[in-house]
Design a binder for these strands. Structure first.
Lengths: 196, 196
DNA sequence: CCTACCGATCGGTAGG
DNA sequence: CCTACCGATCGGTAGG
């Protein structure tokens, strides 16, 4: 579970993880059996263990892989020279992109992390709390500079991240709204609000 | 599964459902066993079947019970004489209240409904889609009247409901922010946006 | 990559 | 409400 590999290097191991991710997202981690994953790949369940060591390891790869990407993006944005509001918008857009392009993995890291075994569970929760704290601090800076509406930064982080996480829901639907419309409207709503 | 009873009439059946809801929310529907629920109530698993007929029936009671409350609230708000923006704010506040007071059941109806068996699954998804369509229509009316920022109404519904659904996350945390702060700040953010 | 298989646990029933 | 129990399925191992 410790090893984090690139998402798409094409190894059989990654194929197994990608396939598992799709099923974990559709049926949930607990309701997906190793036999389900094997069947989708056209092999028998025991064969999967040549590539991974346990079902929970797959979950760990997915959750920590997603966390790593968000943390890396945040670091990059933090070191840029934009205004705070632009930094926040950039982070929002990155989250939206991730939810559009990698929604299966992101959904799992949003909702199925609770099935991680210790000590990975505590590690994941810490990374998550730390990430949100940094976002809240950034928002606070924006408030102090007068760029951001004075609002509780922790509530703002919760609101922003949850709103974006809901794109999973759009992915499940018939997708009549295109990606650009989704992104621009969600950004506008979060930045400018409902009221005209 | 068809019968919808008041949430708190104190019958043993409701105690079973409440207890199950708490565990479904913490561990997920699939990972919660009937023996888990029984143990929490101090009885043996087979005894539960004197009050319910299946594990899936419990899930149905929770999901449809929550749906019923939101639909009833929407009907009430729709028939009031407020401005559209006030109606929307009222619906937002109702969702927040539900997420604060009945977050276990609401979380399950938000995330565990996928484990409903047919024909309940299709029924639930239809109710959900219908509810969101009505909200989108209300938003469109607000836009037409010039009360609401011109924004794609379906994206707005997704954003609002998902943001509120994230309160579950706050419930899982140490809850250092009080309920009033949470509600007022989230409403402010959704109505007025991040930008000052 | 497979077959054969294990112990554990599952939802639920029978019968009282 | 209980004990006793069922067939199914689970994650995973042995051994090749």
């Amino acid at each position: 579970m410790a090893k984090i590999v690139p998402v798409d290097n094409g190894s059989k191991r990654d194929v197994v993880i990608k396939s598992a991710a799709a099923m974990f997202r559709d049926k949930g981690f607990a309701a997906t059996s190793m036999r389900d994953i094997a069947e989708q790949l056209g092999v028998e369940a025991p064969s999967l263990y040549n590539h991974i060591t346990s079902k929970k390891e797959i979950l760990g790869e997915i959750c920590f892989g997603v966390a790593k990407m968000f943390i890396a993006n945040l670091k990059e944005v933090e070191s840029s020279s934009s205004s705070v509001l632009n930094k926040i918008e950039s982070i929002i857009r990155f989250h939206i992109s991730m939810m559009v392009e990698e929604y299966k993995s992101v959904y799992i890291s949003d909702h199925e992390w609770k099935h991680l075994p210790e000590p990975y569970l505590i590690d994941f929760k810490n990374q998550r709390r730390n990430y949100r704290s940094k976002l809240a601090a950034l928002l606070q800076k924006g408030i102090d500079k007068g760029e951001v509406n004075p609002v509780n930064p922790h509530v703002a982080v919760l609101t922003i991240l949850s709103a974006i996480g809901g794109i999973d829901n759009w992915q499940r639907s018939s997708k009549k709204i295109d990606r650009k419309t989704l992104e621009e409207n969600m950004v506008k709503l979060l930045i400018d609000g409902l009221k005209k």
